[in-house]
């Protein structure tokens, strides 16, 4: 390289070390921007990961709680089965909601028993009602001689619908503690429909009542 060229090189390189006005800060920000973008991508990825892990932990916890609840219900059923000698379990499924449907009190049995009112016997009609009717007719004729006497036929009593007693959980629990009463689990909607108590059920309950402990 010639001397003149070396001199030019030296001058121009010295000039490079001089301060210059340019968009230095803007260039630095542009340089940093992709890095910030990368950081924000990492932040989003981390947040998504946290959400996924959190959801998984929550799901696992709920699953564990559910299985624990099933175990507790099963254990409770076993205890109830052992405690109550007449406990009727309709289904082993512990997940179903169960509650004692009915417990019949002795006085209720007495109230429920005479369900159908029998028709009055013909002897009673002949002996007691006839004179009463005749006297009434006589009085009526005396007051209204033009009217014909009316004879009222006795009618059979209408069967009254029985009212089943459905007990709640707290009451059911109280009965469950007592070995003297049995209850059965309600498993389906048909079990919740009101049905009249049949004589055989009343007999069963009455028999339980009389059974010594």
């Amino acid at each position: 390289m010639e001397h003149s060229e070396q001199l030019i090189q030296h001058k121009l390189r010295q000039l490079e070390s001089q301060p210059v006005k340019w968009n230095k800060q803007a260039t630095w920000l542009r340089l940093e921007k992709p890095r910030r973008k990368r950081i924000s991508v990492f932040a989003y990825a981390a947040a998504a990961l946290v959400i996924v892990v959190g959801s998984w932990v929550l799901y696992d916890s709920m699953k564990f709680n559910s299985s624990a609840l099933h175990d507790r219900i099963a254990a409770l059923e076993i205890r109830l089965a052992q405690a109550g000698d007449k406990l009727i379990l309709a289904s082993p499924d512990p997940g179903r909601m169960c509650a004692p449907e009915m417990a019949v009190q002795p006085q209720e049995i007495q109230r429920v028993k005479p369900r159908i009112k029998p028709a009055l016997p013909s002897v009673l009609i002949a002996d007691q009602l006839k004179p009463a009717i005749d006297s009434t007719q006589r009085t009526t004729v005396a007051l209204q001689p033009q009217e014909q006497p009316t004879v009222t036929e006795p009618t059979a009593a209408v069967e009254r619908p029985s009212i089943p007693i459905i007990l709640g959980r707290s009451q059911g629990a109280a009965y469950a503690r007592s070995k003297r009463f049995s209850f059965r689990l309600i498993l389906s909607d048909p079990d919740l429909t009101e049905q009249p108590i049949t004589v055989s059920e009343v007999d069963i309950v009455a028999g339980l009542k009389q059974k010594p402990n």
Binding site: E2, S4, L12
Partner: peptide, 18 residues
Amino acid sequence: PDLNDVCHLPAEDILRLV
């Protein structure tokens, strides 16, 4: 062509010419 004339210029002038 020699650069003897150019190399004696101030650095800013050389840069401007370049």
